[in-house]
Design a protein around this nucleic acid. Structure first.
Lengths: 208, 208
DNA sequence: ATCAGTATCAGCCAAAAGGTGGAGAGACCA
DNA sequence: TGGTCTCTCCACCTTTTGGCTGATACTGAT
């Protein structure tokens, strides 16, 4: 049987090197390429045509992980993409799965989990770390708490500290509309003030 | 010349494995032990008596990195401790240096930077990643921007989304005093609204 | 003894944010 | 076709915040 070819995408040399070392212990898995950015990832995926792309979502400058996933899916749809990242942020998980990720692993995953995910991915199985799976499950169970795309967009700008007026300008909508969206966001997040909304947004969507 | 012995502390197997692989390429550096938590770190440091401890600050459960640094400094003061972490948060940097860290590297550091830090540490040199150094420098240069203890306390509660009234109750001061403190905080942070203050506070102190 | 820094409080006023209720347009699905 | 979502907008009113000015009191250093 041919071994599974993998391309690693992560802006941290240490992490790439660690993955390479770990995956290298498995006879049926071969790392055929590496990339440190979204742009490089596209190149590497084209050049090496791997079975699996294992990538981080957060990539310093340039294209972010989600965007890279989308483009990879378009250009080389046969490759399975596994997200390998530090945080189990709700937003990231949904967006990554939405963009076409096959699996979602956290960086504190045990080596065996990583191996299993890579092997599963080539068979079309999707593997996620336990905390990730439970978060996804929770989101499916409480559809009332899911923000609409527009609301999510607004919330993300909110976390930059903008006023209602600024939000309106930025999104080309009236201040009234901003207030409407905000009211809905507050209700969904279970808070009453923008301050609390920002706090929960950053803590839940952002990072921990 | 004897080689430099290093103990790695990080709860991510991948990162430990990556560091081991990278450091393994250097003839004068030998990884003699690993630990996945603060508690294990103390054990490993005692057992292997390494020249250098390279450790992450964020460690899932149990003792955090800062606490581990403090205890290491007490028990085995001769070992140089280098922090190796993902974020350059102001608070973490100050606390780590305060606790006795010799160096502060970010995980996106180039391998050469890591080697240099390890070699420097045994000679008593402190090495930090450029962004880290610039943050420290900035803090020293702009004492005006340093919050007083009371202000910091307020800011931390602010990031929980409390109203002025609630802040007052929580701190046993009047709403007027809360407003005064807030005005000072805004000025020091360079923002105009509480929303922006929360955003910068969480991003600066916490994580990004 | 004076001065700088910190922490506390007050009052006033303008601006921003939040609550309520209502409404129209377009998309999508049953 | 009718129902449900989503996004957009408006008016009215209350509450909260922020800007400004000024004041008292304690601490510690000069």
């Amino acid at each position: 049987m041919t071994s599974i070819s993998v391309v690693l995408v992560d802006d941290h040399t240490v992490v790439r090197s660690g993955l390479k070392a770990l995956l290298g212990t498995q006879a049926d898995i071969a790392v055929v390429g590496e990339a440190a950015s979204g742009e490089e990832a596209l190149e590497a995926a084209q050049q090496h045509a791997p079975d699996v792309v294992l990538m981080d979502l957060a990539m310093g400058a340039g294209m972010d992980g989600i965007e890279a996933i989308k483009q990879l899916r378009q250009r080389t749809p046969k490759q399975a993409i596994i997200v390998f990242t530090t945080y189990d942020s709700d937003a990231d998980i949904v967006r990554a799965v939405d963009a076409g990720a096959m699996g979602y692993l956290l960086k504190d995953a045990a080596p065996e989990e990583i191996f299993a995910a890579v092997r599963g991915a080539v068979q079309g199985k999707s593997v996620m770390s336990a905390p990730v799976a439970s978060r996804l499950f929770q989101q499916l169970r409480n559809p009332d708490e899911i923000l609409t795309p527009r609301e999510a967009e607004l919330l993300s700008l909110l976390t930059e500290g903008l006023s209602n007026r600024d939000l309106g300008k930025r999104l080309f909508i009236s201040e009234a509309t901003v207030k409407t969206h905000l009211a809905h966001i507050y209700a969904k997040l279970g808070v009453e003030t923008r301050a609390a909304a920002i706090a929960t947004a950053i803590r839940r969507e952002g990072m921990r």
